[in-house]
Amino acid sequence: MKREFKKFFTRKYILTILPILIIIIILGWNETFFGGNKSDSSVYSDFINGIKPYDTREELEELYDSVFFTTEYPGMEITYNQKKNNFIKSVYGLCLEKNLPYDSVTEMGNFKYTQFHFFSYFCIYMCNFILLSAIIIGSFYQTSDFLNKTAKLVYTSGEKRTKIVARKYCVSLFSLAVIVALIDAIFAFAGLKLSFTGAKYCVIFADGTLYYMNYLSFVTLNIFSHLLMLITVYTFVYYFAALIKNGIIASCAFLSITTILLFLGTSAQESAQAIFTAMFTEGLAAAITFRPISTLKYIALYTPFVLSAAIMATVTNLRLKHSDYSR
């Protein structure tokens, strides 16, 4: 493992990755804090503006009762107004539940509606980064031994093939995870400075459910959801490439699928990118905030992805012993 780390983290790698990281952060910064805010807040500011001020708990209860909540089901389409009402009612419900001060809600002083200022753009941006880096590194790190013809030496070193493949997997995944966590940490720190001064709760509204948490939980959620996404995608890509022993085919296949899924909008004008991001992040949000039904729903959404990655790894490991490694 130590030798593998030494081989991976060469001076050349660090000198290559550093400028890429800086470019990613600059681009992401611009997108998250400047590009994203304008268009996004214009769509959802109407939601926030719909929340009426109140002075007493009774008034808050009245407001809560006056708004009709439409229960959402997976795949169900609801109108813009229904969605807005659901959000407003959820906020009133949260204010009641938390017994929040009755004179501060008008400015959303206790909340940051994170999904639309910081959260969504950053998450989608990270989603792209994670997918592309996982596909490229996952496709080529292990299979480069076949391109360089070094496989004949690597796989006759005396270790089991599954162990060699797993070691390379761990080292490359760890290196990517460090980068992802580093970017997350930088953005979390920036978000703390720019977007969350004075906020008590970070709120995520998804599929009719209002999730709320403090900023630390929110940052943790971000990091964990990104790492889960990375592990899932990376495992699938890496072991698929290891199975077919061809990084070029694997990367072309996954990049094509990713392009179709992420950059071409669906008929519901909601790109798969957003769905993919939401699937991981909101699923975890639900899990963290202990919403049993929602948790089940979202876990059900991303379970096939996690399972398919695990199955791919298992199948590849079973095939490794009988594969031709003489190329």
Binding site: K152, L153, T156, S157, G158, E159, R161
Partner: peptide, 12 residues
């Protein structure tokens, strides 16, 4: 396969 740790190889 651990026996291969003491086997030197040059192929092609």
């Amino acid at each position: 396969p651990s026996i291969l740790a003491d086997v030197g190889i040059l192929i092609e």
